[in-house]
Design a binder for these strands. Structure first.
Lengths: 410, 410
DNA sequence: CTATTTATGTTCGACTATCGGATAAATACG
DNA sequence: CGTATTTATCCGATAGTCGAACATAAATAG
């Protein structure tokens, strides 16, 4: 509804002040005024309130800016330890949990290997709960200081309702996983598709900090993507992420895990590359995940060593991925495309063909306008992404949260 | 910046009240309160102001709602003639201008045939200006009552800056067309790609009124699209529309006007269908636009009469379009896809294969979740779209307009 | 060493737009 | 004809902003 009243005004200005401090810290009140356009009075009032809540603090060191005449300024900073954040990532063989502060700096992390996910949603929730509680203890804090929990889950997840619609881990039936975890921990809980988690990590701490509209493509076991627009992650009409991995580039292409043919994933995902490599060598396909991982390492090594058939295979992968990304660019006109994921361990073999195909298939008006960045993966992304998910929830612009307008209420 | 102060609060609530009246008219103050959640006092103040400005009016007829006890309510309505709106559409062979009221009801229209567009941007601007002035006179009003002008131009148009980057009419060099028209008329002027104009028309007056996230695909001389998200038309990072027509679905497909191969357009646009039909008949291709139009009518007629080769041709068009739309759906997860455009005169021949291909290539999670609607075209869309463009500008949510936040100001 | 200049931050009163409660209006129902 | 009921307005209280004046503290000029 977003009815305007003093409360909204307060929320907006508080947000702006906090945001300015986050962004320019350490910073004095006068400078906040210059950035936000708010009156001196207002800023004094708001900062006094924030100082009282310990959300921000005076800066100890007082480095006096360069041309320093007049009354010395009182520098303000965020208090990054005002609250902590928990990120939990579920992948096929483990649960990884990290506790970080509000700057996504890790305090503690816990990894629990999982042999068998077939214990039902409640069983899984219990395992995740245990891991989270352990991590919190390890971090030397307790639940009361946790501002939120971010969950990363593979599959189709409706982040608005918090329901997993389809997931290799949580199953093919809808599971209200967010609510289950919130009930167990009593803390605000958010969930996202894992590709979206990476996107958030790029936005807050990676290559997306300076662009308002960018796309992340993750190549791994599957091919995923996330799309950041204005201040928000794009979720389609049904709350789920976008599916780059399953757009079709060649109707007569190889079969995909999804049962169809010619999907991007069927060319560029780990299993697809290995399938093709083994096919070239006259070997039968493998299906076990660890075998795929090992096989891929081997294939990459041999391609780097110069095996012509494999070099050509990676070239074709680059070509296909480039075509797919060209479609993406033509359709979404992003400011930047960030390529990441474990599947890019052979980035050097893929990149030239990829860039060439991208250029060849981009519309002339867009050609050269969209940057393509390879960003190699660190294991931290998950923790940072989950942290970012919570931060995004905490520092949400007040006028965005309540975007429901009269017309929609009907 | 969106600094919150009383002015913002006022703007928001004024917007909400106006919006509620637009949507539920005729409506009494108490009901506006129930819809917006605003206090009685506030609504009285705001409506008094709006009545004073003649933006809204008392409803003459007083039909007393069903259960009518108590003091009779004073019904309020928008005044659709408070201001007028001009829409101008540039197409390859004419300029069409319409003057409408705020409900997009036409007051007058003018169509000026154009033989030769090669008169340079200034020459074109002059022609458009003359047509607009003529239409305004014909409508019996004058420029002072015009709230805004909406321009529809084919090609790549940056609607934020108002610059035409590439257009078959305005040329391949950037032209600040919006500013040129604004300077000539002294009225707020907005511009959009023509596919986006159709999208706006669908949103305000067509099949998109009840969905927050939908895609429009226009099939005509080319294949275009528009994407409506939340309350806004999606413009990529460079301000231009999305380009569905030039995503590639078959790298070995037929050549496209854009110089590449296998674009959706190269299968489904008028010229592509006719090319294929004439090819089947052993005839050389034609290039003249009018010849294409006439040829297509003929081909459609013969296909309807049962010519098996042509029936099959349309089936293949449907198949290809269905595959393309499946990609779109997988990538954007819209709530609805609206298919429209003159190219769908043969919708009945295309539709079955299209739906089949769409279902076959959609991800299982999305299958059946996204409605596909065929919406046949009327010539009014352009006027309505241009009107909607201006209305969108006039009735913009106050908190959206100033979405620039501190972080971006830097 | 003192006076001036300059930048920062706080206090005070004015302003504006909201809201809830009391009041007034106008009709249906019993 | 009085009472209940719904609608609209009047009035005072509240909350948050802003600008002007004031207080503070340091650099700089004389």
């Amino acid at each position: 509804m977003l009815a305007g009243d003093t409360e909204l005004v307060r929320a907006i200005n508080r947000y702006q002040v906090l945001h300015a401090i986050r962004r320019f810290e350490p910073v004095c009140r006068a400078e906040i005024g210059r950035h936000t356009g708010l009156g001196r009075t207002t800023i004094s009032a708001i900062t006094a309130s924030l100082l009282g809540e310990d959300v921000i603090r005076y800066d100890q060191g007082e480095p006096r800016g360069v041309s320093a005449r007049g009354r010395p300024r009182e520098l303000l900073r965020m208090n990054p330890n005002f609250a902590y954040v928990v990120g939990a990532k579920l992948s096929m063989h483990q649960i990884s949990v990290a506790v970080t502060n509000l700057r996504a700096e890790p305090l503690a992390s816990v990894v629990v290997p999982v042999r068998n996910w077939a214990v039902g949603p409640d069983g899984i929730a219990n395992m995740v709960e245990d891991a989270i509680r352990a991590a919190i203890v390890k971090a030397g804090t307790d639940l009361t200081r946790i501002a939120g929990v971010g969950l990363g889950v593979p599959g189709f997840v409706d982040s608005v309702t918090g329901v997993s619609q389809w997931s290799p881990i949580l199953g093919e039936q809808p599971v209200p996983f967010t609510e289950m975890m919130r009930a167990r921990l009593g803390v605000m809980t958010l969930i996202e598709n894992d590709a979206n988690l990476v996107t958030l990590a790029e936005r807050w701490f990676g290559c997306g900090q300076d662009v308002e509209n960018f796309v992340v493509v993750t190549v791994e076991g599957g091919v995923g993507m996330g799309h950041f627009i204005h201040g928000d992650l794009y979720h389609g009409h049904h709350g789920m992420g976008t599916e780059f991995g399953h757009i079709k580039i060649d109707r007569h292409g190889p079969p995909c895990r999804c049962g169809q043919n010619g999907c991007v994933e069927a060319f560029a995902a780990d299993y697809a590359i290995l399938r093709e490599a083994r096919n070239l060598a006259g070997l039968p396909p493998v299906h076990d995940e660890i075998a795929i991982e090992l096989g891929m390492r081997d294939v990459t090594r041999r391609a780097r060593a110069g095996d012509p058939a494999l070099v050509d295979l990676f070239r074709r992968v680059g070509e296909t991925l480039g075509l797919g990304i060209a479609n993406l660019v033509n359709l979404l006109d992003p400011g930047r495309v960030i390529l990441t994921g474990a599947g890019l361990r052979a980035a050097d073999l893929i990149e030239p063909a990829l860039r060439e195909a991208l250029a060849a298939n981009s519309l002339s008006v867009l050609k050269g306008r969209c940057e393509l960045v390879f960003h190699t993966w660190t294991d931290e992304v998950w923790a940072r992404g989950s942290a970012a998910l919570v931060l995004q929830g905490l520092y949400r612009e007040p006028w965005r949260g309540a975007t429901r307008v009269v017309s929609e209420v009907v």
